[in-house]
Computed example of a mutant assay.
Amino acid sequence: MQRRSLLLTLSGLAMATALPLFAHAAPTTLRVMTHSSFDLPKELLAQFEKDAGVKLQVVKAGDAGEMVNKLILTKAKPVADVVYGIDNTLLPRAQQAGIIEPYTGPASQRASVVTLGEGVVPVDYGYVTLNIDKAWFAKAGLALPTSLADLTQPAYAKLLVVQNPATSSPGQAFLMATIAGLGEEAAFDWWAKMRANGVKVAKGWTEAYYTDFSRNGGTRPIVVSYASSPAAEVFYSKEKISESPTANLFLKGGVFRQVEGVALVKGGNPAAREAAGRFIEFMRSAPVQEALQTTMWMYPADAAVPAVEVMQRHAAQPTSFDNPEPARMHSQAKAWTQRWTRTVLK
């Protein structure tokens, strides 16, 4: 009787220890690599984890170029299962390096405003362009430039700040727009004239927008930024305003369209492959497509998702843009950046 009682006690103890372990088994970890601008509401990410039964491990790898570099360097032993933020300037390099695997789930068939590349699902898009400080121009009584050529004239001397294409994604995008819109030789001739006319070069977007732009206390009333920036000015304004203090200049050779997507990482954890596909579907879901407009300030790729009010009213899209062919961007980007450095900085 004592032995039977002991056996029952041991059996009950085993069940008591085994059941909690089974009930609280650690969920599969889904490793998501992104660029540093990735930003979605915490509640959306938490809901995804709950629905997919996974634990998200979001790794922000710097700008998009750094992100792709890390995936290439670790391709023998991938550090991510899915990647968000590969754009049209970097996709040819990613494909050539063999770091992404085509995804053919429902999201890849959904109607999109933009396209990116086979097997990569477009998530959002935006435009790098010139922004102006409306109050500065009104006070100065100076007409807005109507072409890039205008900016080389004495009246616009020392008014523009750009980002260095060697250290900044929008800086590189703007350089590529000038080349596609003006032609390579005419573009570098324009840059040489801009150097003579006092163009200022900042390391990155933050320095250009928040230090040099006159809207934020600087001396330059024209800055390379994004078509959505005027909407962000309204959204983040401490006072309720109905009109943005900034505006876009959509000039020939001064508008670049960036398209960002999400893709499977080749060689990712097989146990997380289903969850990786669910994450791709999640990024094209209506809640995410709506939210990213006022967190990452991009336009939704899904054709069925409308622009939110602040984007509708203050982030008009250009009717045209100037992008080199993706393969040409990939093959020439380094040489163009080196030539830009010699032309503008040295």
Rank of each mutant, 00 (worst) to 15 (best):
residue 73 L to I: 05
residue 151 L to H: 04
residue 106 P to A: 08
residue 128 V to N: 09
residue 83 V to D: 08
residue 337 T to K: 13
residue 151 L to N: 07
residue 172 Q to I: 06
residue 232 A to R: 07
residue 82 V to H: 07
residue 204 G to D: 15
residue 281 E to H: 03
residue 38 F to L: 05
residue 276 A to I: 04
residue 218 G to H: 12
residue 125 Y to F: 15
residue 70 K to W: 12
residue 295 T to V: 06
residue 323 N to K: 05
residue 326 P to Q: 00
residue 211 T to A: 11
residue 182 L to F: 04
residue 161 V to T: 08
residue 15 M to R: 03
residue 287 P to F: 00
residue 160 L to S: 05
residue 189 D to Q: 15
residue 172 Q to H: 11
residue 150 D to A: 11
residue 102 P to N: 08
residue 309 E to G: 09
residue 29 T to E: 06
residue 252 K to P: 12
residue 317 Q to K: 15
residue 226 Y to Q: 08
residue 50 K to H: 14
residue 193 K to T: 10
residue 255 V to C: 02
residue 109 Q to Y: 05
residue 314 H to T: 06
residue 125 Y to C: 03
residue 170 P to Q: 06
residue 56 L to F: 11
residue 199 V to H: 01
residue 201 V to M: 13
residue 17 T to G: 13
residue 325 E to I: 04
residue 162 V to S: 08
residue 223 V to P: 02
residue 208 A to K: 06
residue 51 D to A: 07
residue 219 T to A: 13
residue 328 R to Q: 15
residue 61 A to I: 13
residue 126 G to K: 07
residue 3 R to I: 10
residue 143 A to N: 11
residue 226 Y to P: 02
residue 237 S to P: 07
residue 162 V to M: 06
residue 295 T to H: 12
residue 48 F to S: 00
residue 65 G to C: 02
residue 253 G to N: 11
residue 160 L to W: 04
residue 29 T to S: 01
residue 266 K to P: 05
residue 328 R to F: 14
residue 114 V to D: 00
residue 207 E to P: 08
residue 128 V to C: 09
residue 238 K to C: 04
residue 271 A to K: 02
residue 176 M to H: 14
residue 250 F to P: 10
